[in-house]
Structure formats: structure tokens, C-alpha cells
Nucleic acid binder design. Structure first.
Length: 637
RNA sequence: CGCGGGGUAGAGCAGUUUGGUAGCUCGUCGGGCUCAUAACCCGGAGGUCAUGUGGUUCAAAUCCCAUCCCCGCAACCA
């Protein structure tokens, strides 16, 4: 019986359609899972969606539908994208599934019964309009980072999990299993930032929203995200505290949880501790993969740099996007994505090196031997180097793949394709073809080429399953298992080649970029007015006036804030604004600027601010809007 | 001095564990070839390896020290 391998992605939060960065994780996990299957493991691959929480409740309310209806829609979209990417998962769990809800409730109850969870009060900085808590460090100038309003110290009844109880045991596990946290650098972060200073108890329930799994013995509370979401890895296998399913007994513990680096803490600290509390074994490995950046920035809607999997797949095909994602991401560093980079990769690696190699080889077999691959009878010293390259490539591919270095593994596979192109130049089949006496040699060269292609395609089939499949068809390969590439020469002689159909047609970069830009422009023209329409009445609520800056100075203890007295006609307002990086107090005085006069006053850094100065700002510079020589108090509209 | 990672050719990266001629991909320049998707193969140019003409050493990108810059984490953010 073959060895089991249980692999999971994090479950995707069903608040909106995932972008290509979110999609990376499923592709990465799928490639590892496929590779393990090739290597003969009995693989179980789990993915799914996390569907509870305040944010989803809010969005659903805004759209006037039930949260369940909303997550049904988004979970469907997510699943469609996972399928579009060709991911071959065994199960797709949703945290709203009945069996999951029930199991989580039992897990929560068990923790409570055995004294791991206790009821207390959660004290924190709370923003009432946003209904959320923030930490000291999240605040922007002492105010809510979402709405900019003042936060209050508030108490909320909540259940807490006694993390400290299991701390030493966890520390020991991490020490005894040096590979548990990947990559290594993240491990230090976890130990130094959290474990060493001592774990705080984790707040595990909420009363401020209702879209969650209810606590069975206290109906004011819903179970807060982590116990709900993390449990999916075992509930999906049929685990429940009172009954472990067959799948659970077979596959748990997980061999690897593939997750984003941002949630590593939850998977390497809280999740193991939960499992300890349940008395269950811990996962063997947690891999916090890096992020995919768009240019140099994190992908975000507000930056307008978001790319989606379906758009990219439509343009380049699934396998090209899978290939790009996997080889553009170094092991522990963020990768980048842009249309230009995709096109370059596509043209050089896939079209020129890989696709063209297949195409020229198949074409030669067709041209010189009527499509029949003959027995290799006439070896030459040159062949040895190619065979050695094939061996190195396979060995390197295995080593890197086993170490989760997918990009390096791909590089090993591609190096065999490159070596094969060189082999064609060295052996010059078109010269051999002119000499009837060299027919045996020509047949041997072509055989070696087809064999190298087959080996490369087997390696790359976890990365580009569709492409490998169509190559196998083109070269009529019958041997496609991993064992068949450990030794050179498993291609069946006498097989008949198919038509040489290009696998990846070259892309005209200039033309495609023009197309893309045209499409983007068209989209923007349509979208912007549609999405955020504000009526004139809404606008009229703002009292914007020209105001003359009478005096201005730095807010004590801040290098970003200026506090100014501004004459807005009938009164003088004190306004604090975050413009000190671009304006010195002395050069700000005397300007006539645009001021919102009816803003609810707030305290910033302890200084009262009664209005807001309008300014155009990006990350680096700030340009305050000026009103020329308009008299103070002049209405701006 | 909170913890950690990083600064290597125009761009993106490897090399640092175990010091010993600075390497890969893209781009660029030149050559070769014609089987193939204007593809493929070979060669050249281009680097004070952040800084300190710092320390150790026969020898430092690599080990040690100091400084500067970037990035991640810093506890509930799903």
C-alpha cells in the first residue's frame, strides 16, 4: 500500500472574488499534489472557503441579501476559478457546511468543558461606526484606520483560549521538528515575537456580529474565526470530538499546510495548540509561501493593479499562467506579476525553448522518417552529454520539488529542453539527412530528442498538465510515469508521430500590450461613474470653503502632522492635517486652501481638529488644493 | 539598541551554510545555422558584490565589527 500524503491550502475568505495573488496558492498546492501523485503517494488534497465573519455580514447587508446567499455566490466563483486553474483537489470544504458547523460547535464545547476556554472580557480600542476592534499599532494618528474617526476603549464579553498552558509543549515540538515551519526565517519570527515573550490568551468568540457558528451554550456568542476556520483541516476528513471518520484516521496528520505568509502565526501557534487540546497529532509541516506583487506593490483594488486569473487564462491559457506563477516565485521572497513579464516568459521559455523544441523535433521525424520513430542503433559520444543532462535534470527536479522549491525544479526541467536544443545544433540532423549512409545515426539523434522531450514533459506535467498531455499525444508516448524517466531510453521505438502542432504560439508583445491598454481604458470609462455614484445632495452635505491659514505649527511628537488656525469666514477653525512631510509650517501660513468646515471634530494626537484640508496626495508627496485669492469663507462647490 | 530578512551588470535573481578565477535569465552587440514558432546555437560588452581603501586571513560577495538604506513581523488583522 502506498504512503499517504495529506495536503491543504488555506481556505479562501469568501468576501470577494480572489485575484491572481490569491490564486497562486491553489496552483502551488496543486503542483505539489500532482508531483506527489506522480511519485506514487496516496494523495488527499483539500481546499475550500472560509465563509463567516463580520466583513461578509456587512457586504451582504449592503447588497440587501442574506450572508448565506452572498457566500453561496462567492464560493461558487472561487470554486470556478480553482477549477479553471486545473486544480485537482479531492474535496472543497465550506465552513457553512452542516457537518463542519456541527463539529466546530462540539470542538468549542470540548475546549470549554476541559477548561481550555473561559469567559472574560475583551478590552480594546473600538470604533463604533465600524464595529471593530483595533490594536494600538493599527491606529492611524490615534484614530480608526478605516474611517478615521476616534476609537474608544471598550469592553466586550468574550471567550478566551488559554494559550499559555500549551506554550512549552509547542516550543518543544518546534525544536524537535526543525522542518515544521517553512521557510526558516519565518520560524524565527514566530519564536522571537510570540513564543519567547509568552503567549497571550486568544479571544475566540464575538458578540458584535452574528454571522458565524453559534456557541451552543451561550447564544449571544458566535465562534470567532480561528477555531472555525482552522478546524476545516480535520472536519473535512470527518473529524468530530466524539467520532473520527475513516478519512481522518487514514490521512491525519496533514503532511503539509500550504498557506500565505500572513497567516503563518495562526497555523504554527494557535492551530497546533488547538490540536494539542484535542489530543490529536500536529501537522508535519506548514509552508508560508510569499506573495505575488503587481509591479512593486501589493495587489489591491484601491491601487487599481489587480489582475484576475480568468482574464489571464483567457489571454494566455491555463498552463502558461500556471507556469508563470510557479516559476516567478522564489522560495521565500515575493514574486512579481505584470503583463510584460508574462509575455516575456511565455515567448522565451514556452514558445521558443519548449514549444519550438517539440515542434522542430516532431517535424523532423515526420519529414525524414515519415513520422515513424526508429530504433536508436548508432550512438555517438555527443549522446552521452545529453543523457547525463537528462539524469541531472531529473535528479535536480526531485531534489528541489521535495524541498518545495518549485521554481528551481522548473529550472532543472527547462535546462534539459535547452540542452536538447543545443544537441540539435551539435548533431545537425539536416546534414545527416542528406547522406543515406547516416540514416542510422539520424534515427538515433531523433530518438534521443524524442526521449528527452518525453522526460521533460513527465517532469513538467505537475506544472503544466495539459501541455504535457498534448506532447505525449504528439510523440505517441506510452510511458509517462515517474519511474520511466529515471533511466534514459524508455520511449517505444516504432511509434508514429502526430502532427506538429505549435503548443504555444508566439505573442506579439507590442500588439498585445496595445490591446490590453485599450481594454483597460474602455473598462475604466465605463466603470468609474457606475460604481460610486454620489448624488448632488450627498455632495451638498459637505460645507467646503476657502480658508486662509493664519498660523501653523508641528503637532508635538509627530513628524507628519501640522496644526493650523484657519480663517473660514465666520469663524476660525483649528485643523490638524497630515501634510508636514510636504509643507513646513512657515510656508503653509498665508495660503488660502480648501477646507471642509462641517466635519465632526476629532482629536488627533491629543490635539483637537475641527475640519479637514483638501489635498491631492500619493505615497510620497502631498499637494494642498489652493483657492487662489478667494476671500475666506467663500463657498467651494 | 524589539525580532527577523535583504542590498551582487540596465532589469530580475543565484552564489554566503563548508572563504579559493563573480554566475544565471531577460535586454544589448557580434557571429553561426536553416530542422523549427523571425525560432535555435556560439561569443563579446557590461559588476568598487550597499558603505567604511575597517578587522581576521596567504586569500573575503562569503567570517567578524560599525554605519546607511529597503522589506517583513510586533498579538486577534479573516
Amino acid at each position: 500500500m502506498s504512503e499517504k500524503f495529506y495536503i491543504t491550502t488555506a481556505i479562501a475568505y469568501a468576501s470577494r472574488k480572489p485575484h491572481i495573488g490569491n490564486t497562486y496558492e491553489i496552483v502551488l498546492t496543486d503542483a505539489i499534489a500532482r508531483y506527489k501523485k506522480q511519485r506514487g503517494y496516496d494523495v488527499y488534497f483539500l481546499t475550500g472557503t472560509d465563509e463567516h465573519g463580520q466583513k461578509i455580514q456587512q457586504i451582504a447587508e449592503e447588497q440587501g441579501i442574506t450572508p448565506q446567499k452572498y457566500v453561496d455566490k462567492v464560493a461558487g466563483e472561487i470554486r470556478d476559478i480553482w477549477d479553471l486553474m486545473g486544480s485537482d483537489y479531492n474535496k472543497f470544504i465550506r465552513t457553512t457546511d452542516d457537518y463542519h458547523v456541527e463539529a466546530v460547535q462540539k470542538i468549542f464545547k470540548k475546549f470549554y468543558d476541559q477548561g481550555d476556554i473561559y469567559k472574560s472580557e475583551y478590552e480594546g480600542l473600538y470604533c463604533v461606526p465600524c464595529e471593530s476592534f483595533f490594536t494600538e499599532t493599527q491606529l492611524v494618528d490615534g484614530c480608526c484606520p478605516d474611517c478615521g474617526r476616534k476609537v474608544e476603549k471598550t469592553k466586550e464579553e468574550a471567550y478566551f483560549f488559554k494559550m499559555s498552558k500549551y506554550q512549552d509543549k509547542l516550543m518543544k515540538y518546534i525544536e524537535e521538528n526543525p522542518d515544521f515551519i517553512q521557510p526558516e526565517s519565518r520560524k524565527k519570527e514566530m519564536i522571537n515575537n510570540f513564543l519567547k515573550p509568552g503567549l497571550q490568551d486568544l479571544c475566540v468568540s464575538r458578540t458584535s456580529f452574528t454571522w458565524g457558528i453559534p456557541v451552543t451554550f451561550d447564544d449571544k456568542h458566535v465562534i470567532y474565526v480561528w477555531i472555525d476556520a482552522l478546524s476545516n483541516y480535520i472536519t473535512a476528513l470527518g473529524y468530530s470530538p466524539d467520532q473520527k471518520g475513516e478519512l481522518y484516521n487514514k490521512y491525519w496528520p496533514a503532511d503539509i499546510h500550504v498557506i500565505g505568509k500572513d497567516i503563518l502565526r495562526f497555523h504554527t501557534i494557535y492551530w497546533p495548540i488547538m490540536l494539542m487540546a484535542l489530543g490529536e497529532p500536529l501537522p508535519k509541516k506548514v509552508f508560508g509561501h510569499p506573495w505575488l506583487l503587481s509591479g512593486t506593490d501589493k495587489m489591491s483594488k484601491s491601487r487599481g493593479n489587480v489582475l484576475y486569473a480568468d482574464e489571464l487564462v483567457k489571454r494566455f491559457g491555463v498552463d502558461a499562467i500556471r507556469y508563470y506563477l510557479l516559476c516567478e516565485m522564489p522560495y521565500a521572497q515575493d514574486g512579481t506579476i505584470s503583463y510584460e513579464n508574462i509575455i516575456t516568459r511565455y515567448n522565451t521559455d514556452l514558445a521558443n525553448i519548449w514549444g519550438n523544441l517539440v515542434s522542430r523535433t516532431v517535424a523532423m521525424v515526420n519529414k525524414y522518417f515519415g513520422g515513424t520513430l526508429e530504433e536508436p542503433t548508432d550512438a555517438d559520444g555527443l549522446d552521452g552529454e545529453l543523457k547525463a543532462a537528462a539524469k541531472d535534470a531529473v535528479r535536480g527536479f526531485e531534489r528541489n520539488m521535495d524541498g518545495l522549491r518549485i521554481a528551481d525544479a522548473i529550472d532543472c526541467a527547462m535546462s534539459l529542453a535547452k540542452r536538447s536544443n543545443k544537441y540539435i545544433d551539435e548533431t545537425m540532423p539536416w546534414v545527416l539527412a542528406k547522406d543515406e549512409a547516416k540514416r542510422g545515426r539520424l534515427a538515433t539523434v531523433l530518438y534521443n530528442l524524442v526521449e528527452s522531450i518525453r522526460i521533460t514533459a513527465v517532469m513538467l506535467s505537475s506544472v503544466m498538465p495539459g501541455t504535457s498531455k498534448s506532447i505525449f499525444e504528439q510523440i505517441s508516448a506510452t510511458e509517462t510515469g515517474w519511474d520511466s524517466i529515471l533511466e534514459f531510453g524508455k520511449t517505444q521505438a516504432g511509434s508514429k508521430m502526430g502532427e506538429a502542432a505549435p503548443l504555444f504560439g508566439r505573442i506579439d508583445e507590442k500588439k498585445m500590450m496595445e490591446e490590453i491598454e485599450a481594454e483597460l481604458d474602455a473598462k475604466e470609462d465605463k466603470k468609474v461613474p457606475e460604481e460610486n455614484l454620489v448624488s448632488i445632495d450627498d455632495f451638498a452635505k459637505l460645507d467646503i470653503r476657502a480658508g486662509k491659514v493664519l498660523e501653523s505649527k508641528y503637532v508635538e511628537g509627530s513628524d507628519k502632522l501640522l496644526v493650523s488656525k484657519i480663517d473660514v469666514g465666520e469663524k476660525v477653525l483649528q485643523v490638524v492635517s497630515g501634510i508636514a512631510k510636504s509643507y513646513k509650517p512657515e510656508e503653509f501660513v498665508g495660503k488660502t486652501v480648501a477646507v471642509i468646515c462641517n466635519l465632526k471634530p476629532v482629536k488627533l494626537r491629543g490635539v483637537l481638529s475641527e475640519g479637514m484640508i483638501l489635498a491631492a496626495s500619493d505615497k510620497k508627496t502631498i499637494n494642498v488644493l489652493e483657492a487662489g485669492d478667494a476671500a475666506p469663507g467663500t463657498k467651494i462647490s
